[in-house]
Nucleic acid binder design. Sequence first.
DNA 1: TCGTTACCGTAACGTACGCTACGGTACGAG
DNA 2: CTCGTACCGTAGCGTACGTTACGGTAACGA
Lengths: 196, 196
Amino acid sequence: MARRRDLADQRRRLSAATWSVLAERGLPGLTLRAVAERAGCTTGMVLHTFADKQALLVHARELLHRRTGLRADAAQATAADPVAALRAVLLQAASPTEEKREEARVWVGFLAAALADPVLADLHRDYNRRFVARVRELVHAARPDLEPAEAADTATSLVALVEGLNALACVDPETYGERTQQIALDAALARLRVEP
Amino acid sequence: MARRRDLADQRRRLSAATWSVLAERGLPGLTLRAVAERAGCTTGMVLHTFADKQALLVHARELLHRRTGLRADAAQATAADPVAALRAVLLQAASPTEEKREEARVWVGFLAAALADPVLADLHRDYNRRFVARVRELVHAARPDLEPAEAADTATSLVALVEGLNALACVDPETYGERTQQIALDAALARLRVEP
DNA sequence: TCGTTACCGTAACGTACGCTACGGTACGAG
DNA sequence: CTCGTACCGTAGCGTACGTTACGGTAACGA
């Protein structure tokens, strides 16, 4: 036996480097060499940790989803009432701050990559459906009187609004600033507080 | 003098080929060779028509914007009342049909390309702001009683919803089908019909 | 009809990519 | 301390990219 490595930690570091490069240089700049340089290692180490580039992307995508999921759990848990929980979950999924906007750029990059890669497309679809399901349950908790179909439509609408805010904030953070995103979300949520 | 070419037509054809490749193969598959093959010519002809790849992308982006703008004009003109005009403009900007979904994939591709290319980013921001301005005026026409700031917030919200529907329909057309998109838009527009 | 010239296809250049193979190196076991 | 092995950096392979240069070709004026 010889020296052992922390494989999980390496994968985590390389995924973080992948996000960083993707946010900064975009999809065309996401090369194994760039990821290796950002992680402070070589392409040899990257391809000893992941079988190929797609495996790296898949792991980075999964880890990103898990991270946002945990953040959503936290936001949901600390909220006082169901409406506040719904608002907290949606707000943290949007990208008001610069840090979140970087995450939104990563999200757009993965979305564009998914258009050419069926595996990434499956992941994207799965994860988005899970997010819709979470929002749907929160909508149901906030407004138990709504029909299931109505709650589902509301959830897909809210998720679309959030992802639209993310996409637009990527390229025009001035128009889609923190205040604007909060106002947009609160306006959409206002329909849940009063009877239609 | 010798044979003359229709430069504008060539540019139009190559831009159409660019959209087609971008929708089908995604951003990584958008190579000059693929565009040339789709257009039925060679890379030599492409680079005699455009100075370089970026010029081709910029032209394709501008033409796409002009096309969607004209379609929005048409939708707006045939509507009976301001609310109907607003609804028609937003619906045609969303992607209910398969044909529109292809356009949405192109839109996502350009968005991702804009994250790495400042020129494309400028175009994207400009065009989106113009779309927001159009929607803002339609909102004002539909609800003249709203404060300007309120109308602006409503417009940015509606645009975000539409683009979110587009982005999500790209990767999950089942969840974000024609009916769902219409319901989402109508629900958002319902707030404009009644006094808050 | 013929020469001129704008046009574009062909071929190849340099570069950077994903990926592989091999050799050196550092660590844990004995 | 020393051996053996798991690990990873180095170097380079083949490929495909954007771009360029040049020669052939087709159309227009005369």
